[in-house]
Write a protein that binds this DNA or RNA. Structure first.
Length: 699
DNA sequence: GTTCTAGAAC
DNA sequence: GTTCTAGAAC
């Protein structure tokens, strides 16, 4: 179908299901048809699932080579909606319907990768319901030849600021309403009115697949981007990019010569150690002395110069004005992490709007020199929408200005050390964000380890659970905690005390047959509401150690004791029932106080497993394998936790074959029958125990 | 963590 | 009509 939009721009729809003379064709045919249509000056709608990055990259490349704007409209509908629609539809062009459809859709959704601006899209619109889809269709239908749509990401449900454990229990921040208003606001502001004759077939978008992509020809738009864009726009957009200002050299009056040395050392060192990332030092002025010093010093070093370079431009408008796509920007913040003050800090807070202030508050209150904190930028922020910036890393450098706090009074030995620490901290935070970028990792472990983007595993001072890394706040928290007798200041409901009670006074309960073992370090207890045929808890007896968030390196021997007690009981159960498979691990955010290890058989055959939260708490990244936790604590001094509650609300997927299911009863009947092998990430590192593998899980 | 239940989904 | 979920109360 080629819909000639009412306003005049002709559209060509390229659909693989019909491209072979009305029948299904090949991707090559689609690419050719798209290229031809673009040559004829048409806008092109690629009506193809394109769920995986690699699948769509050829289309993106095509768009870029003819200098067209490439947009993605991502239909991010819940799996159960996709499945039920595809099953019940009739006369689908590709004949993906009926019983077969569930299987096909499940297989496709398994590999779903949300589009990123870094792939080369200039605009991405997320649609998560019918309303979003209608808006997107209306918007593109009404697009006239002189219209252009803003660049950036629209309608994405924010990953949101990381919720602290305490937030979860005190009150739920209503992120859903915030997100909704953002989506509506963006689309309605972009929507052209008065054009209702939809030339794009909405039903195709709704049922045909989860993702479609539009390649829009708009040469005039590109010209506006000016000189710099030509130079950089072609540069590699597959790299996760950090743009950063020179730290401390403006208001903090740090010596430029010395600063440039630190920058070049830290940056070249970093890019040599990390793949798939690039660093860009940004300054406003063409005559910037710090840029030329850094350029000169960098020229004398040998490293890949496309991975670290300097750029003249406004750090808040790098994409729109400079044509440089940066996922992450660093901010030369003040110690209070407050907006204002002029310079880069004021500019970034200004450009990012209130969303950044709120998100920052969720992550930290203050910052000390040499430290940084990464803040996920909500999708409501204009900086996110227009520039594609997903994170802001606030950093505080050393101060040489006697009019500002913590002046080092020209002590450049200390100053250089603090500046180096500051850059290293920023780069490490950036590295963990880069690792969590979809496509920059391919296993579940790495994604959950840094998914929040706030956690810096190499910096023991950096906060977890979205608290902060400042010593000031840490102290006050510790004082609060002392009063509670605990290490974290999470509040526990009365119902959350029972494990604590058992751990403190196991002798009181020793006659109960639910208690399997009591030692000085732990108590082994049958879970009162087992979520599988066999489900026991190994509860630590250390007072004040309530969850993984409290665990420090000193607790490593304890973790090992809990683990080996868990193994012992798993083996005992395997002797009784050789068909079982066991997994040992912790909940990222437990509901019950007192650190406890779950030992749970993987049949999940139990009437007590009743809801989505139950299921996801044992089968998503919310469940942290004991072996990983021990490694993590050993290497980093604490456990890396992703406290994102969204993990518990995720769609229901089989823990073996990853197929999606619309509800718990359907899921349970599937898992009762599924014989697929377990995912490879569980087969590694002896995370699963069974008789057939003969694994012990000890290594 | 569970129980209860209104109301959404089928 | 029944089934299932999700939020409040404990």
């Amino acid at each position: 179908m080629a819909g000639a939009a009412a306003a005049g721009r002709p559209w060509a729809r390229v659909c693989q299901d019909t491209i072979g003379k009305g029948k299904a064709g090949t991707k090559i045919q689609c690419l050719k048809a798209a290229a031809d249509a673009l040559k004829e000056g048409k806008s092109v709608l690629i009506d193809r699932c394109n769920l995986e990055r690699e699948q769509r990259s050829d289309f993106v490349k095509l768009g870029c080579t003819v200098q067209a704007d490439v947009h993605a409209v991502f239909l991010d509908l819940p799996a159960k909606v996709c499945i039920s629609r595809s099953v019940s539809r009739t006369s689908h062009e590709g004949n993906v319907q009926g019983g077969m459809a569930a299987m096909v859709v499940n297989r496709m959704l398994k590999n779903k990768q949300a589009p990123l601006l870094t792939e080369g899209f200039s605009r991405i619109t997320f649609c998560t319901d019918d309303d979003d889809i209608k808006k997107a269709v209306d918007m593109y239908s009404a697009l006239g030849p002189s219209h252009s749509l803003a660049s950036g990401v629209f309608g994405q449900k924010s990953k949101g600021p990381v919720q602290t454990g305490i937030m979860k229990f005190l009150k739920k921040a209503d992120t859903s309403s915030v997100n909704k208003s953002s989506g509506t606001m963006v689309t309605s502001s972009e929507r052209k009115t008065g054009q209702q004759n939809t030339t794009l077939k909405q039903e195709n978008l709704e049922a045909g697949g989860a993702c479609s992509m539009q390649v829009e020809k708009k040469l005039d738009n590109l010209k506006e981007k000016g000189e710099q864009s030509k130079e950089r726009v072609s540069s590699d957009t597959s790299l996760c990019t950090l743009a950063f200002p020179s730290i401390s050299t403006a208001d903090f009056q740090f010596d430029l010569e010395k600063a440039s040395e630190v920058i070049v050392d830290a940056a070249t060192d970093f890019v040599q150690k990390h793949d798939n990332v690039r660093l860009v030092l940004v300054d406003l002025s063409q005559k910037s002395r710090i840029l030329s010093l850094v350029k000169d010093k960098a020229a004398k070093k040998s490293f890949d110069s496309s991975r670290f370079f300097t750029f003249v431009g406004d750090i808040t408008q790098l994409h729109s004005k400079g044509g440089l796509q940066c996922n992450v920007i660093a901010n030369a913040a003040n110690w209070r992490l407050k907006p204002g003050g002029g310079g880069v800090n004021a500019a970034i807070f200004n450009a990012a709007g209130e969303a950044l202030q709120h998100a920052t508050k969720e992550c930290a209150d203050t910052l000390r020199p040499g430290n940084s904190v990464a803040v996920p930028l909500p999708s409501t922020s204009p900086l996110h929408q227009q520039e594609g910036v997903t994170h802001v890393i606030h950093v505080l450098g050393p101060n040489m200005n006697p009019m500002r706090p913590d002046c080092l009074k020209n002590d450049y030995t200390k100053g250089c050390n603090v500046l180096r620490e500051a850059y290293n901290s920023v780069f490490e935070n950036f590295a963990s964000i880069a690792r969590s970028y979809p496509g920059k990792q391919n296993d579940e472990t790495s994604s959950r380890k840094s998914a929040s983007g706030v956690i810096s595993p190499n910096d023991s001072k950096t906060k977890r659970e979205g608290i902060d890394d400042s010593e000031r706040t840490k102290k006050s928290r510790e004082e609060d905690n002392k009063k509670n007798g605990g290490v974290t200041n999470k509040t526990w409901g009365s119902w959350a005390q029972s494990l604590y009670e058992v751990a403190m006074h196991p002798e009181k309960y020793k006659n109960a047959d639910s208690i399997l073992e009591i030692s000085d370090e732990f108590v082994v207890l049958k879970d009162l509401y087992p979520k599988a045929k066999r489900h026991v808890l190994v509860i630590s007896r250390t007072d004040g150690l309530d969850s993984l968030a409290d665990v420090k390196k000193v607790h490593l021997p304890l973790l090992r004791s809990l683990h080996s007690a868990g193994l012992k009981w798993a083996h005992k159960f395997l002797e009784e029932d050789a068909s079982l498979t066991f997994r040992l691990g912790y909940h990222s955010v437990p509901s019950m106080r007192q650190l406890h290890l779950h030992v749970i058989s993987q049949d999940f055959n139990s009437p007590s497993l009743k809801n989505k939260k139950h299921w996801n708490s044992f089968t998503s990244a919310f469940f942290l394998d004991s072996v990983d936790v021990m490694d993590d604590v050993d290497q980093h001094g604490s456990a890396t936790i992703n406290p994102d509650e969204k993990l518990l609300a995720m769609e229901l997927r089989c823990h073996r074959c990853r197929s999606a299911h619309p509800n718990i009863p359907k899921l349970k009947s599937h898992i009762g029958a599924c014989k697929s092998p377990f995912p490879s990430h569980l087969l590694k590192k002896d995370k699963l125990l069974s008789v057939s593998t003969g694994r012990t899980g000890c290594s």
